[in-house]
Each structure stands twice: as structure tokens, then as C-alpha cells.
Design a protein around this nucleic acid. Structure first.
Lengths: 370, 370
DNA sequence: CTGAAAGCGCTTACAG
DNA sequence: CTGAAAGCGCTTACAG
């Protein structure tokens, strides 16, 4: 019991240790172990001795020391807002792409979760203290304040940003086109009254989607109808709230024939409410999501959706960021990078069972019991 | 165009800069800005000058330098294996808990994705080079090799590990009890033939779940039946494969009355196959998952499941790891921490619409057309 | 109350 | 081909 206890050797071996062991300087060890260009400068025999010593001591370069010297952490920040305290499937998909690309370039990724883009702005800026070489913002809500605070020494790239900021490259998709085509497709099937349950207006992406939707209606000469576009949070509870609210407001009226949603989570929330109300999908009403995230494939019926290549987009965000990091000194690198890379991705309609031809009989919205 | 171009000021302000600006030493700036205990040693007036200078220069401590000095990165590694190149909902849930707890302690988290626990063992060990202060392994498959390679200077904690390793604290749940209770519940409803589609045998957790399941059958004196426990990957495709394979092998026989699955993803995969085969849930067959991850709530019908408090478990993994990091020097800290903390969590049955009483009529397994 | 010095572990010129 | 020196930005004793 209370005897002498061996202290765990908690100190990792350093270059100096390796050098001592091999009978050379730390510097020599450095040039052998950390494969600088001048690797031929050390004689074969010394080289072997050093490698052997490193193996024996289980040497690993200390990244903090290296980072201090190189001004490079090989670590990329990923900032995301958490709704309802949960990272969502949209983020998971994007993050998959980021991580995959980061691995390829031997970069680490550190996730920073924010409660709120505006209030946590200072926190976000605070992360630019050398721990990361660059930051990817996923779905940020950028305020004018941001532009003044963003530090020059850490490049930022965003995904689905709400607004264009000079010096921040944004990756996005042709959301408007996607929305247009989905609504167009529904109209072609014979649908006439289409409800749009979407995200909050501040997001440029949402504005584009609504725009695309309305344009399709206009082109088909469908008159605009009051309260047929509803704004809510891009989440299951958001869809839930919006759908039940809408049904209550329009009780006793004719049910629309189709619903297009701002994302899959909203669609799932709507589906839950419809199921409870005894309204069948797609027999009574068609519904489609946006993103084609994992959730779209696990609903029954499976959800038609508008696919953004989120994974590729995440990967591209990382690639572009890395280019910026590597060319930090060049003042016009932003424009060059913008020109040389794909920054806006094509979307694609994904057809599943939640959409069919419109019902042929009238259906009056029943009272909800919750 | 080709004129002189201003170089972006890419160097962040240092303590020396702040000191110079305020007319004091870097050291004085350090003690004011980085609130060491001896903060009262600086006069109020100097203090203000320093703070003002720091604000002006937008000073932020450089974490690399600090880490080098403190031997502390304030960064926690999270290692996870990616199946099918995708992070899964189980991980997302655990990660939510880890991130939340990490935020509370001002720690960052860096995700390391592995293709394979065995082959990537060296990579995993390689991450212990000072960039993280400790590592959480999520669902690792630990080989004997691991014990020899794991570095002493970086503490490890695991979640749902396959085997106990001295020096690695493992967080787990009473999975066996959970399985026992779910099967028991099905038996009480009147089910007799229950198919078990679960994960691979190497995982201790899977062994426990199967054990619990079989024990419940034995206690109810249900005779063991051949091929009623099937092992597959813990993923949607895994469930897909296992279910369609099983139905083909047993075509023309009586369909079991219920299915218990190794996790929710497997259950979702099974549901897809059953839906295609025209077998209704829960009228024709009941099914339940394990984990109660997000996926369980987005299926229709919603999936009954066995809830492990994944988020809490993730948070606890971080807390325990942090304790270990903070008490690295004490040789018996592992035992102390193990005693002082909750390491095995209770589970809870979650009842949803995918389970009901067994069907009263015979149902012969049809041919599948895929 | 304040500062000069040394050192964390690495790399990058500069000498030999 | 190899090494001594300086420095990355911070902190921690140690002097005054």
C-alpha cells in the first residue's frame, strides 16, 4: 500500500533524447526524422543509428513545438450551430466530406459548436488563436459585424452562407434551380395547390428556394395564394410546429395536394403531423424534402428530395480552404482560388415514394387532436 | 495590375507586442492577460494600460506556444471507425455528448476517423504526439497488440470497447439487461419465435446482447432454434443484407413473429426489406432496434428501441478522461477514477409503434424480387 | 509591484 | 557531411 510508487514516465522522447542516444546532435536527428529536403546530408550509417534510436525511444515529433516554429497546426476548424442541442444529419453529411478530404491531406479537424452565430461571434473569432490554420463555417448567419472582426491571419471558408462577404469564399449549390425543378415536376404531375414549409428568411439559400418555387408557379400561371409559404426552423420540431399550426389555421378548408419543404427534417416533422391526422402519403398528399440526407431514406414512405452533394461540398470547402492557407501571402489569392475552383454545385431531384399524382377527390382538413 | 501589392499582415500580435505598446515587459502583459493567480501583482494603472494595448492590437494568446510550455493542448481526440465511409447516427449522438461536455471545460475535440481498428492502430498511436491531451475511442476493437503500443503519456478512455484493457477506462451500459428485458417484453405480449439480427461477434457488447436475449428465451422455456440469431454489420446495408438473406433461406416457412436488432440501423435495413416484400409492421411482424438513435424516430412506424443514454455516456467519457489527464502523475488514479465515477449506464425500453401483439394467422415467407 | 533569464521541443539559417 | 546558435510565443521560477 503506502510504499514507494513508481512514477509513470509521462514525458515523451524529444529530438535531443534521440540525438543523445545516437551520439549526434538534435539537429541531425531532426533532419533524418522529419524528412526535410536535405535528407541526403546525413551519412547512411548515422542515419540508421538515428532511426534505431528513435524507434527505441518511441520518438514522436511534438506538434506544439513544430506548430510554434512552422506557424502551422495542420488543424482545420469546423464551426457549426447546434439547434435543439443537436448536431443534425445535414451537418453529419457535410462533415463526412470535410473529414475525408482532411484525412487525404493529413489535416485534423476540430469541431466548434455555437449556440448562435451572432452572440457567439466573439467566441468564434477567439478560436483563431493558432490552434487552427483555417475555419470552415457550416451554414453561418453572417452579420456586418463579422467583416470587421474576422482576423486576417486565419482564412475562412463558408458553406451555405447567408451572405457574401469579401475575403470569405462560399461554397453553395444551385438551390433555386432545384426548387424550381421540383415544383415544376409536381405541376407536371397535375398538382395545383402546393404548400411550401421552409426555413427562416435570413438565409439566402431559403430565399433562393422560395424564389425558385414561386417562379415555377408563375411560369405555370398558377395564381399566388396567401399563406402557402410558411417559415420555420430547419428541424423536425420546426416542421412539426409549422404543419400543425397550418392545419389548425385552415381547418375545414380543402387540403393542398402537395408540400415542398425547406429540408428533410422539416418534411419529417410534417409527415408525423399528417400521420397523426390520418392523412396518407402519397395517396392524400405528396411531400418532398431538401438535402437528401440520411433521414430521407428512413421514412416510410421514403422521401422524395432535392439532392445537394453535401459530402462533395464539404470536401471542396476543405480543399479550397487549404489552398487559401497555402497561399496566404498572395493578396489576390481569393480571386484566383474563386476562379480556379467549383464553388456552386449542381443539384438533382431524387424520386421516391412520397410523391405521386394528386388525389382525385376532395379532402377537407380535419380537426387535430394533440 | 502588376503594381506593388500590400502584403496582408499575417502575423498575430504577441505578448511582446502588447508589452511594448503598453511600455511594460512581455511578462507583465502575460500575468495580466492570462489571469494567473498572481494577478494582483500588477498595479491597477499598469493593468489598464496593458488591457487597452491588447485590445488595440487584438491580442490572442498563441495556443501552440502555450501548449509547448504547459504540456497541455486542451484538445481531446475522438477516434471512430467509419463503415461504408460514413459516420453513423450512433456516433453523432455520442459525439454530441462529448462536445457538450468539452465545451463546458473549454476543451476542443478533434475527430480521427479510422478505416479499421486493427490496421490503423499505428495511425491511432501516432496521434498521441502532443496534439491531444487524451483520446476517447468510440466502439473500438482492441487487439492484444494495442496494450503494448499505447503510449503512457496520453490517457485513453473507451466507449463500448470490445475488451477490458488495463489502463483504459471503459464506459458501457447494461446491454445484456436491456436485451433481456426487451425479449421478455415481447414474450409477455405473446411472441414465441423471435429473430435476432445483430452485430459481429467480436464485440463484447453484442455478445452480451445475444446472451441477454437467449437467457430470456431460456427463462421462458422457449427452445433454441437454429438460425434465429444472425450476425451482420451494424449498419443499414448490414440489416438489408441479413434480412433479405434470411428470408431467402427460409422461403416457404412460417415468418417469425418478431425481430430484435443489434442497433437501429440494422432495424431500418430490415424494415426496408420487409416493406418491399409486402410484410407489414407491426401487423405481420414486430421489430425493435437498439440505441434509440435519431433514426428510430424517423421511421414509419416509429421504431421501438432499447435506449442507451449515448449522449450522457459520451459526456461521461470526456469527464473521466479529463480527470485522468489532470491526475496523470498519480499511479493509482485509474483505480480511483474507476471507483469514483459511473462507468456503466442503465438502459431503458422505448415503446413505439413498431411492436404490437403477434399476428393471429399464419404467414408464409414469400419469394423476394429484387 | 515589476523585469531579465531560462526553457518548453522544434526548425532554420549560418558556420565549419 | 555535421553542429552550435538563435528564435517561434509563452510561462515559470528567481531577483530586485
Amino acid at each position: 500500500m503506502g510504499n514507494t510508487k513508481k512514477k509513470r514516465t509521462s514525458r515523451a522522447a524529444t529530438l535531443a533524447d534521440v540525438g543523445r542516444e545516437a551520439g549526434v546532435s538534435a539537429m541531425a536527428a531532426s533532419s533524418v526524422l522529419n524528412r526535410t529536403k536535405s535528407s541526403s546530408r546525413i551519412s547512411q550509417e548515422t542515419r540508421e543509428r538515428i532511426l534505431e534510436a528513435a524507434r527505441m525511444l518511441n520518438y514522436r515529433p511534438n506538434v506544439a513545438a513544430r506548430a510554434l516554429q512552422n506557424r502551422r497546426m495542420n488543424n482545420i476548424g469546423v464551426a457549426v450551430m447546434v439547434d435543439y442541442n443537436e448536431l443534425n444529419p445535414y451537418f453529419l453529411e457535410v462533415f463526412n466530406g470535410i473529414v475525408e478530404a482532411a484525412d487525404k491531406h493529413d489535416q485534423n479537424t476540430t469541431v466548434f459548436t455555437l449556440k448562435d452565430w451572432t452572440n457567439d461571434l466573439n467566441r468564434l473569432i477567439g478560436f483563431c488563436d493558432g490552434r487552427i490554420d483555417g475555419m470552415i463555417m457550416v451554414g453561418p448567419l453572417i452579420t456586418p459585424e463579422f467583416e470587421q472582426l474576422v482576423p486576417l491571419h486565419t482564412p475562412f471558408v463558408s458553406l451555405h452562407s447567408n451572405s457574401a462577404v469579401s475575403n470569405v469564399i462560399n461554397i453553395e449549390s444551385f438551390e433555386g434551380t432545384g426548387s424550381y425543378e421540383m415544383t415544376r415536376y409536381l405541376l407536371d404531375l397535375g398538382h395545383k395547390r402546393i404548400l411550401n414549409v421552409t426555413g427562416h428568411k435570413e438565409f439566402v439559400g431559403i430565399q433562393r428556394r422560395v424564389q425558385g418555387h414561386l417562379q415555377a408557379l408563375e411560369d405555370a400561371q398558377i395564381p399566388h395564394e396567401e399563406d402557402l409559404v410558411v417559415y420555420t426552423e430547419l428541424s423536425i420540431p420546426g416542421g412539426h410546429k409549422a404543419m400543425s399550426g397550418w392545419l389548425k389555421r385552415h381547418r375545414g378548408e380543402e387540403l393542398p395536394e402537395a408540400i415542398v419543404c425547406g429540408n428533410d427534417s422539416i418534411a419529417i416533422g410534417c409527415m408525423e403531423v399528417l400521420a397523426k391526422a390520418g392523412i396518407r402519403i402519397p395517396q392524400d398528399i405528396s411531400i418532398c424534402g431538401f438535402d437528401d440526407s440520411i433521414g430521407a431514406r428512413t421514412t416510410v414512405p421514403q422521401l422524395s428530395s432535392i439532392r445537394q452533394p453535401l459530402r462533395q461540398m464539404g470536401a471542396q470547402a476543405l480543399e479550397v480552404l487549404l489552398q487559401r492557407i497555402n497561399t496566404m501571402e498572395a493578396p489576390d489569392s481569393v480571386e484566383q482560388i474563386s476562379k480556379a475552383n467549383k464553388l456552386c454545385f449542381d443539384i438533382e431531384l431524387v424520386h421516391r415514394a412520397s410523391v405521386s399524382k394528386p388525389r382525385t377527390t376532395s379532402l377537407i382538413i380535419p380537426a387535430l387532436n394533440d
